[in-house]
Design a binder for these strands. Structure first.
Lengths: 226, 226
DNA sequence: TAGATTGTTAATCGATTAACAATC
DNA sequence: TAGATTGTTAATCGATTAACAATC
């Protein structure tokens, strides 16, 4: 336990988990490191070594890993076997979209409230949620045992919201704005960076002349587009 | 030109660019590698080496980099000095949110249409856009010189949409679904992975006991939460 | 001028991969 | 049994950092 695992490994473990989720119950109940690596564009060696970072793992020669068991071990690893409560700050387009997105809930993330600063938006309803005033943020977090704050306000207000979340002793922040945030070390922080993915795409597209020479019909696993 | 640059470097270069954008015209017109690295939680060495990958760069001893010039060089590097046309497939919550999000447009990405398969949604209006039938996708891409396709449909339909985009010779795909995609090598692919960021957060939060021992008030730059 | 900061080379660090004994 | 696949060690590869001469 707790020799910090590299973020690269954590990211790939998430992908394995999502892939297993997607497979559902189709096509048998076992999966080998070779199948997983093939589907995700990795080497089987990487897959086996990543999985060996889990506290429990239990591959079987000639069969591979039991899919349900592996999925369960991954859930414990991420802590998503127990529900994790989150709030969204910012009821603009992104905030609303996240709130209405059912998939997060299915993966153990409970969005329990949405906040906004705009008096015209506060108290309006989105689905079954009533938008709360951001003034209530600190109290709400303390009283409802909220672990994660999702920042979906305009970039210019992101740091201020981060500071408020920090004061309220939030444990983790998901930053959806393009603004880089400063937070105390003990708060976990990840950035979502849609615009960064677009920059990467734009760069890769311009590189293409090289690539298209190489090959036309080779299929690549759905990874982060290396 | 075109010794492929590592995705790590490309990602950091995006961050530099966004940071410069955020600074705007405040606080002088020069920035040193030390300032940039401090703001983003990196070493100045990394910053200088990353910048040296640009075709043009022009740091000056004792002053650093001219902010406007550096931003311009980064734009040429990413190709976002010329507008890049994109379409969104899927007019659900995420698709709509992206369409309405002004920031992408400001960065050179023109969303020129949104598509959906649901006859109840097709032809409805979102802002000034009329949702188009996904049947028109291939024609539209060919006729309007679309370079990027953004997939915002339910995960189960993601691969099918990717295949159609590929047939229409799209150059790049941004995948917003949790489904890993298979595409021919010459199409650039990046995944957005909001749910993966949530898994990372959840993992980090559970690690916290260790971290909180270490330090309480150390401020960290807003990077990807290593 | 003296000192700060670049650009770049070489060293270090860590992530990925190869290899293989164990085992089902 | 023979062959496939794991778990793990050691080798390789590549990303990051340190160091420093050049220079403004």
């Amino acid at each position: 336990m707790s020799v910090a695992i590299s973020p690269f490994v954590v990211e790939r473990l998430s992908r394995y988990y999502l892939y297993l989720t997607m497979l559902g119950k189709k096509n048998g109940s076992w999966i080998s490191s070779k199948e997983l690596s093939g589907a995700l564009g990795l080497t089987s060696s990487t897959v086996r070594q990543d999985i060996s970072h889990l506290e429990e793992y239990n591959g079987i020669s000639k069969r591979g890993y039991n899919r349900e068991e592996l999925a369960g071990n991954l859930r414990s690893f991420f802590g998503t076997d127990k529900p994790c409560r989150a709030v969204i700050v910012g009821a603009g387009n992104f905030g609303r979209a996240l709130l209405l997105h059912r998939e997060f809930h299915g993966q153990g993330f409970e969005i329990s409230a949405i906040f906004d600063a705009n008096p015209k938006i506060v108290k309006t309803k989105i689905d079954k949620f009533q938008v709360k005033d951001v003034k209530e943020l600190e109290n709400y977090i303390a009283e409802n045992n909220i672990e994660i704050g999702i920042i979906a306000v305009p970039s210019s207000e992101a740091q201020e919201v981060a500071d408020r979340l920090a004061n309220a002793h939030i444990r983790g922040i998901l930053n959806l704005t393009t603004s880089p945030l400063q937070v105390v070390e003990k708060i976990a922080l990840v950035d979502s960076r849609l615009i960064i993915e677009l920059f990467k795409l734009s760069y890769q597209i311009r590189l293409d002349p090289e690539n298209s020479k190489k090959c036309d019909a080779v299929v690549r696993g759905g990874n982060n587009g290396s």
